[in-house]
Computed example of a mutant assay.
Amino acid sequence: MAITRMLAQATVTDLEQAVSWYTRLFGREPDARPMDGLVEWHLAATFGVQVWAEPDRAGRGTIVLDEADLGTRAAELDRAGIEHDGPEQATSSRILRLADPDGNRIVFTG
């Protein structure tokens, strides 16, 4: 068996609120709505992010995304009105942490 695609998932309480927030995060509307309660952003040919409405499990996820330029990403987040504390030094790299409206962590690393 060969795994050829990966989708990270954030579980949320209010799908339309989350779609608005993730649309600002990624700078574009979702690429797919494969079923009720699920939206997807295809970030490359073989990976992406799903946002799934399941209130009982909402807010407990973490998505880590590699980013070439954290300073540029921070500026884009500022323009999109997404709160963050800016890039910070971690043990082996720099990271930029933020949270969606349900508290799911999004961590850009670079």
Rank of each mutant, 00 (worst) to 15 (best):
A2W: 02
I3E: 01
T4C: 00
L7H: 01
Q9I: 04
Q9F: 00
A10Y: 00
D14W: 06
L15V: 00
E16R: 02
Q17V: 05
A18E: 01
V19G: 01
S20A: 13
W21G: 03
R24T: 04
F26K: 07
R28F: 00
D31C: 01
A32P: 00
P34N: 07
P34K: 05
M35K: 12
D36E: 15
V39N: 05
V39R: 08
E40W: 11
W41M: 02
H42K: 13
L43M: 10
A44R: 04
T46C: 05
F47R: 12
G48F: 11
V49K: 09
V51A: 06
E54L: 15
P55L: 13
P55K: 15
D56G: 14
R57M: 15
R57C: 15
R57H: 15
A58V: 12
G59E: 07
R60K: 15
T62S: 09
V64R: 13
L65V: 08
D66P: 06
A68S: 12
L70I: 05
L70F: 03
G71N: 02
R73Q: 12
R73T: 12
A75P: 00
A75I: 01
L77R: 03
D78P: 06
D78S: 11
D78E: 15
R79H: 09
G81I: 03
I82K: 07
H84N: 03
D85H: 08
P87S: 11
Q89W: 05
Q89L: 03
Q89F: 02
A90E: 09
T91E: 14
S93D: 12
I95S: 04
R97C: 11
R97K: 09
A99Y: 14
A99D: 07
D100H: 13
D100E: 14
G103D: 09
G103T: 10
N104S: 12
N104M: 13
I106H: 08
I106A: 13
V107Y: 05
V107R: 08
V107Q: 07
F108Y: 11
F108N: 06
G110H: 04
